[in-house]
Design a protein around this nucleic acid. Structure first.
Length: 724
DNA sequence: CCAGGTCAGGTGTAT
DNA sequence: ACACCTGACCTGGGA
């Protein structure tokens, strides 16, 4: 019990004394108990205190984050929102809330119409947060986190005032939007290619085996390969007016701090940081003559990617080769003289007029889905320029750039981006206290490190279990019949499982399966399906894919990070434990590892989460079989207190990089859906993995009906300061 | 198997 | 009309 309560502490990111926390916890548990008693009496009518438990409220917070984002986007005046906070609190307590997805949802106009009456939480959060005193703390925590020991939070959000936070969030949202378009376009391409394949098969009628090898069919269809979904995604964003900063700017871009890492050139375009996905030099042409008095063109941003043979990079000082005369192929050769025009002229003008240029460095890196990372290294000034004969004997223009002073220090890490300090073997791991906490259950071992405690101790008091254990009084529904596909499912028009998902597979095959966007519910193929284990529609069933590590933090107890890059939409892990009845769980005081399966409530719009997909996505007959009582609150939950997997170590964060997704595969009972955690963003190695526990502020009441509060120390730049 | 080669791809800018 | 050079696939040489 003692060990367990120690474990508990980390889960809620608490910093104060343990005994205090423990007290708090028990009170909360009591509140839960009271609530449950009410429900147990014969629920349906939802009396007693409103639902304090974790999962039911989980995504509310995300919703708030998104709404805040929306708000910030539409209006700058957040301050006046404060007053409305009270109303929101009432709304929350009245338990009728809408949820926003784990971040995959776009911030589109129509969304606003739906949620606009409830845009207050943004301000609500601020007010409740009591910024002044706590902000300092969180900043400190934040920079601590940035020192990589705790896994860094987000390269771009180091310190900063209020306005800056929302800028960081804007950037984050824009990148998420980009990723969403990207995955949707990947899906389109995969579909198209699959169709082309099928047609070719049909054309060849009998000879199936021939079509299996790509070579045999290539000459016919050049469209066999996917076409730059990244470029398509930014085109789409331009059409939709979703580029964050569509007008070029001189100097820093709000929300992009020095050290910020882009994972592709297209991401820079999406943000408006660099408006070409191809050009090295982004400059303002004559069209900017009305706004600026400078001699145009002027350069605003350049990308150093080692493409030019004559480049020289000494970190603080760079010699950049102008554009032109390049043979445009992979061998990086100059084949012509460069001229003082376009980008070259723009850099010269910057030099003459003393204007700063944003510098981005491209690096080879395994920590990116493209194998490349682009780091913003700050503002530089062009101190000198000249023309000379380059290595290949042609005239090249050279620009000596010097980094402006007063900017964050360039670390070697940023200049020569490597995998951080990811250990290559067990012997390299510092503070190792357990080689594999899974005890061999998972395909990939999960080491545990502890550089905080003295002596270092591993986590105790639980048993690792990679899949759910079903409590005695819970009966899993019968296995449903599956699809008739053979081998792998690839035709969404015939695969029964795809049809349940709204006539599409929820996943793309790329990178071993990525969820295109957060959905109310994902139907995967199951044991009765005709397809094999390699089917993309079994993405969440394939076990761990990334090398995870449990590590001890100074303030938040245990935490989890990955040594590998995790692309957005990739499955990270399931949340497992004992699958039991919510009412039984509540009798276990102080158990803080309970995850309610609130999928049904979400879909019905009754719980804390907001709908993710459009109406009609979930087959109506699926919802019919549940009676009123099961709607009012989650009937089942997962208790990872004594038995669980890696997910039980993942901390809460108000600005998380994972989101929760319910998945059905063997049966179709929403109340017993599996709970999966997916990457909401592209996650670089060693960044702590977090998801939003989703308590709504002021939704937790103690036994006297008074609002309970618990501080949050996640350290995110827009932390709500309270877990509930 | 990996390194190097190949080529399509979309926008801004100048002609 | 064209420069811009990335990203992902393809190919061929080495292990």
């Amino acid at each position: 019990m003692v060990a367990q309560s120690l474990d508990l502490v980390h889960q809620h990111s608490m910093v104060s004394t343990r005994s205090a926390e423990k007290n708090l916890e028990s009170k909360v548990a009591v509140a839960n108990g009271g609530d449950r008693a009410a429900a147990g009496r014969k629920s349906g009518e939802l009396k007693g205190s409103p639902m304090p438990r974790r999962s039911s409220a989980r995504i509310r917070a995300l919703q708030k984050a998104e709404e805040e984002e929306l708000l910030a986007r539409k209006k700058a005046e957040e301050v006046e929102e404060k007053k409305k906070c009270q109303d929101e609190v009432t709304v929350v307590k009245g338990k009728k809330r809408r949820r926003k997805s784990g971040g995959e949802e776009s911030v589109v106009a129509e969304e606003e119409a739906v949620t606009s009456p409830k845009k207050k939480p943004a301000a609500c959060r601020k007010e409740n947060g009591n910024e002044e005193p706590e902000n300092g703390v969180s900043l400190a925590a934040c920079s601590n986190g940035k020192v990589e020991e705790n896994g860094k939070e987000e390269s771009g959000n180091v310190g900063g005032g209020l306005g800056e936070k929302s800028d960081v969030l804007k950037v984050k949202e824009t990148i998420r939007l980009f990723n969403k378009h990207y995955l949707q376009l990947v899906q389109e391409e995969e579909k198209r290619c699959g169709k082309a394949e099928a047609e070719r098969k049909a054309a060849k009628n009998g000879s199936k085996k021939a079509s299996k090898s790509k070579k045999g069919v290539l000459p016919e269809d050049s469209k066999n390969t996917a076409k730059r979904p990244d470029l398509k995604a930014i085109s789409k964003m331009m059409q939709n007016n979703e580029i964050l900063y569509p007008v070029k700017r001189i100097g820093d871009i709000p929300g992009i701090e020095v050290g910020y890492q882009f994972y592709s050139r297209a991401e820079m375009v999406a943000v408006g940081f660099h408006s070409h996905w191809l050009n090295g030099i982004d400059f303002m042409g004559q069209s900017y003559a009305k706004e600026y008095d400078y001699e145009l063109p002027i350069a605003v941003a350049i990308v150093l990617s080692g493409m030019y043979e004559d480049d020289l990079d000494n970190a603080e000082e760079v010699v950049y080769t102008g554009q032109g005369g390049h043979n445009l192929t992979g061998d990086k050769r100059q084949i012509r003289d460069q001229k003082l025009e376009r980008g070259n002229l723009a850099l010269k003008n910057c030099s003459d007029q003393g204007l700063p240029v944003r510098v981005v460095r491209g690096h080879e890196s395994s920590s990116s889905y493209t194998g490349k990372v682009y780091t913003y290294d700050g503002l530089y000034k062009v101190v000198h320029h000249w023309a000379e004969k380059g290595l290949s004997g042609f005239t090249v223009y050279k620009f000596r750039l010097k980094r402006l002073e007063g900017q964050p220090i360039l670390t070697t890490n940023q200049v020569y981006f490597t995998n951080g300090r990811v250990p290559q073997s067990l012997t390299e791991i510092r503070g190792l206290v357990c080689e594999d906490i899974t005890g061999g259950e998972e395909d990939i071992p999960i080491p545990v490190t502890n550089l905080v405690d003295d002596p270092p101790i591993p986590p105790t008091g639980f048993k690792y279990c990679k899949s759910n254990k079903v409590a005695k009084n819970v009966k899993l529904p019968l296995t449903v019949t599956g699809c008739k596909c053979k081998g792998i499912c690839n035709d969404p028009t015939t695969c029964a499982c795809a049809l349940r998902n709204g006539s599409d597979f929820p996943y793309v095959s790329r990178d071993g399966g990525r969820l295109v966007e957060a959905k109310d519910i994902v139907f995967e193929c199951g044991p009765e399906c005709g397809c094999g284990p390699g089917c993309v529609n079994r993405t969440s069933q394939k076990g761990l894919r990334y090398r995870l590590e449990v590590f001890k933090t100074a303030k938040k107890g245990w935490a989890v990070r990955s040594w590998d890059f995790i692309p957005s939409g990739a499955p990270v892990c399931e949340y497992t434990g004992i699958l039991g009845r919510t009412e039984d769980m509540d009798s276990v005081l102080e158990n803080n590892y309970i995850f309610e399966i609130d999928c049904l409530q979400t879909i019905k719009g009754l719980g804390g989460r907001e709908r993710r997909s459009q109406d009609g996505e979930v087959p109506a007959n699926l919802l019919d079989k549940y009676d009123q009582s099961s709607e009012s609150m989650p009937e089942f939950c997962i208790d990872a207190g004594s038995t669980g997997n890696i997910a039980r170590f993942i901390n809460h964060c108000c600005e998380p990089n994972l989101f929760v997704q319910c998945v059905l595969s063997t049966h179709h009972d929403l109340r017993l859906a599996r709970v999966m955690l997916f990457a909401a963003d592209n996650i670089p190695p060693l960044q702590e993995l977090t998801y939003d526990y989703g308590y709504a502020l002021d939704s937790v009441l103690d036994s006297n009906g008074k609002i309970k509060q618990m501080p949050c120390y996640c350290g995110a730049s827009d932390c709500r300061k309270r877990l509930f």
